[in-house]
């Protein structure tokens, strides 16, 4: 189980993992990077992020469909940055995040190296947003719903197509009741990079900090709106939530609406204007003209 790579066809390939490790070893040996950020087997059948700094560490690297945590969050962590330049074992959701971060000027050219597998099992070494954008669509697992992530397909009443607003509101009200405001959703999100989050501001206090019904509703609406047009649907927020709230569905809903209204999708290009703050003469709304 340890050495498997998920393919769209469902087949698993052990040799591909060896190819990834080999390329990682070359990068470490050549001094191109000082750390490989990937996944390893953790405790009790869980996976964990893994920081390989010596060639012998590389044996522990794995990649399978349990690897949902978005490793892009580590590119902003001071202790990880202090290790030196990183190569990251990349999944399509991670690469989408990098593209969106680049679009927001939060990923600098060649800041890190990304190692991904193409559908033939070849290792791709990517470091610029252009390179990522060029290959992303052809990578295995880059289209369709990502495994492990709660999907709207399993909850038809919640999909963007459903018009039953009351049912949706009742569902989310109930879900948000369980929120304990730990902000694990924020910590696990690569797009939540603000030095000071709006909920951490107390002058003014934009939204209530307390985990009561109104506070939770305001937090989740704010979180969703701040990610509208920016979320790449990696599912890390839902994975991290200790209360099991399928948070990414809210973001997915907004992502679908943004695509309908503005014809754009986060994580597809490094040259993407923020849909909700850019004025275009061709906008359908007339109030601003």
């Amino acid at each position: 189980m340890a050495e498997t790579v998920r393919r769209t066809s469902g087949q698993t390939v052990v040799n591909d993992m060896e190819a990834l490790r080999q390329r990682a070893r070359e990068l470490l040996d050549a001094g191109t990077v000082q750390v490989i950020i990937g996944y390893a087997n953790g405790s009790n059948r869980r996976v964990r992020p893994f920081f390989a700094r010596r060639p012998e560490d590389l044996e522990r690297l794995i990649l399978d469909d349990r690897c949902v945590l978005n490793l892009a969050v580590y590119l902003r962590k001071p202790e990880v940055k202090a290790l030196g330049k990183a190569a990251v074992i990349a999944t399509p959701p991670l690469l989408r995040s990098i593209l969106q971060l680049a679009a927001e000027n939060h990923y600098q050219e060649s800041e890190a190296v990304f190692l991904a597998l193409d559908s033939a099992g070849n290792v791709l070494e990517l470091s610029s947003a252009e390179q990522i954008a060029g290959v992303l669509g052809s990578l295995p697992g880059s289209t369709g719903q990502d495994a492990c992530v709660p999907s709207a397909d399993r909850m038809p009443a919640l999909s963007a197509g459903s018009t039953d607003r009351q049912a949706r509101f009742a569902f989310w009200k109930q879900e948000f009741e369980r929120c304990i405001r730990c902000y694990a959703c924020r910590a696990a999100c690569p797009m939540c990079y603000c030095e000071q989050c709006l909920v951490d501001s107390n002058q003014p206090q934009w939204i209530p900090v307390a985990a009561h019904s109104i506070g939770n509703l305001e937090w989740h609406i704010s979180r969703a709106m701040h990610l509208a047009g920016r979320c790449v649907n990696c599912g890390a927020c839902s994975e991290a939530c200790p209360a099991g709230i399928p948070l990414n569905l809210v973001n997915q809903f907004l992502a679908d609406r943004i695509q309908q209204e503005f014809g754009q999708k986060a994580g597809t290009s490094a040259k993407l204007d923020y849909a909700l703050s850019v004025f275009s003469g061709s906008d359908r709304e007339t109030f601003i003209k």
């Binding site: 990880v80 730990c182 694990a184 910590a187």
Partner: peptide
């Protein structure tokens, strides 16, 4: 704590 995200789930 190299992997720690500071998410506070543990405390909550």
């Amino acid at each position: 704590s190299l992997a720690c995200l500071g998410c506070s789930t543990c405390a909550f």
